[in-house]
Structure formats: structure tokens, C-alpha cells
Design a binder for these strands. Structure first.
Length: 216
DNA sequence: ACATTAAGTGATT
DNA sequence: AATCACTTAATGT
């Protein structure tokens, strides 16, 4: 009867206190599997069918959307421990192809739940339903925030916000990437990023090296 | 030493 | 702020 994975059971406790029912916790530990990703690894790519819903227990995951036309990318948000990918819910339940790509920003661990349970639990466990709703809601809030950042804020503020977020995601003040990559994430031109970074350096907010930005 | 890739610059729109 | 056309600097082979 108690043939569930103790490790997962513990991880659920630590990272998802909102999932209250003991029976639910046990079920997760029964059907979920742990998956580890190294920093930079692609977890889900555009166009792939989503058949697992990830519950993030360690690390951070970068969620990116690809533009239909010219294949440019735009950073949507980062996920942290205790969160899940809301996109995956809608995607998998409607059996749709993924519009987004997720990559591990840092070394990460997720509990992967097969889709069939995700749906089933919605009706059986109130706290699961609540969890799903809540993650939709908070993601929606995030999106609205980033939309008006894009619409109303200047590029330099966006850049700074981006650097801070990456610093958090990597648990390091040193951001290891090129101006080109940053420009792609914010979908701006490389030159613009270079210029803004130099302004930030003058202001003493960062120091710059090749492939490296030090946030002070 | 040479080639490649990243970053800096100024002009143009 | 984007794009272009360079230049300069750092790094890899």
C-alpha cells in the first residue's frame, strides 16, 4: 500500500505545502518521477507535445516564447522552486503543441507528473485544483506586469530588471552571457544592449568583461 | 600568426 | 531604438 517514493513525498512537503491532502501527496509520490537537468539544458522545445507537468523543486527554469514570424525569442519569465509551468497545464490538457521553450537556467530538479493525473486530480483534490488556479493567477499577474514593462518602461529599466532576475536565478552576481544573448532575450539589438550596459558601468552598477557581467 | 567571435562606435533613418 | 558598416579587442587553433 505504501509503495510511494519517499524522496518525492518529502520534496512535495518541502516545496509545495499548499498541496494539503495526504492522499494527494502520496499519489504524487507514486506516479511522479524525478528529473534532473543541468544548467543550459533544454527541457521542452517549441512544437513538442507536452505529456508531463513539471513541479519544480530545485533550481530555476527559463521560459521563452518564439516569435511566429522571424523566429526571434522573447523571455517570458523564470520559474523557481515551488512553482510549476502554467503553460504546460493548458497545453497538455488540450493536447496542443508547446508554444514555448523551457531551459534549465541553473541545475534543476522537477517532479514530473503524467498528464492524465493532472486532470483527474482537479476534481478529486481541492488543494490541487487550488494550486493549479493559483499558479495560473500568479502567472497571469506576472504577464500583465511584464507587458506593461515592455509597453511603458524604457529599455534600461528592462535591462536592469533582467540582470537582477538572472542573478537570482543563478544565485550569482556574475552573469555569464554575451550582449547578443541578452539582446535576444529582451528582443532588442545587440548594439543597444552594449550601449546601455556601458552606461550602467559608468554609473557603477555593473562591471563588464567579455562574456561576463558583474552585478554590484 | 591568423581566424573567429564579442564588443564598441558613429552615422543614418 | 533599429540597422548598417566598420573598428577594436579578446580568444581559440
Amino acid at each position: 500500500m505504501e509503495d510511494f517514493n519517499k524522496e518525492i513525498f518529502e520534496l512535495v512537503h518541502q516545496n509545495f505545502p499548499g498541496l494539503a491532502e495526504l492522499a494527494l501527496q502520496k499519489e504524487i509520490a507514486q506516479v511522479g518521477s524525478l528529473k534532473h537537468f543541468k544548467a543550459g539544458e533544454v527541457i521542452m522545445n517549441f512544437g513538442s507535445y507536452v505529456k508531463l507537468v513539471p513541479l519544480l523543486v530545485k533550481g530555476s527554469i527559463k521560459v521563452v516564447r518564439e516569435d511566429d514570424e522571424d523566429g526571434r525569442e522573447l523571455l517570458l519569465y523564470y520559474l523557481y522552486a515551488g512553482e510549476t509551468c502554467s503553460m504546460s497545464f493548458s497545453c497538455c490538457m488540450m493536447d496542443k503543441r508547446s508554444d514555448i521553450r523551457t531551459t534549465a537556467e541553473d541545475d534543476s530538479t522537477v517532479i514530473a507528473i503524467p498528464v492524465k493525473y493532472v486532470d483527474e486530480w482537479m476534481s478529486r483534490y481541492p488543494s490541487w485544483k487550488n494550486f493549479v488556479m493559483r499558479s495560473y493567477d500568479s502567472r497571469m499577474q506576472e504577464m500583465i506586469k511584464t507587458i506593461d514593462t515592455i509597453a511603458f518602461k524604457k529599455m534600461d529599466e528592462r535591462l536592469l530588471k533582467y540582470l537582477k532576475e538572472r542573478s537570482i536565478a543563478n544565485k550569482s552576481r556574475i552573469i555569464h552571457s554575451t550582449h547578443q544573448e541578452i539582446a535576444a532575450d529582451l528582443n532588442a539589438s545587440r548594439e543597444a544592449i552594449s550601449r546601455l550596459l556601458k552606461q550602467l558601468e559608468k554609473k557603477g552598477v555593473v562591471t563588464l568583461e567579455r562574456n561576463k557581467i558583474n552585478l554590484l
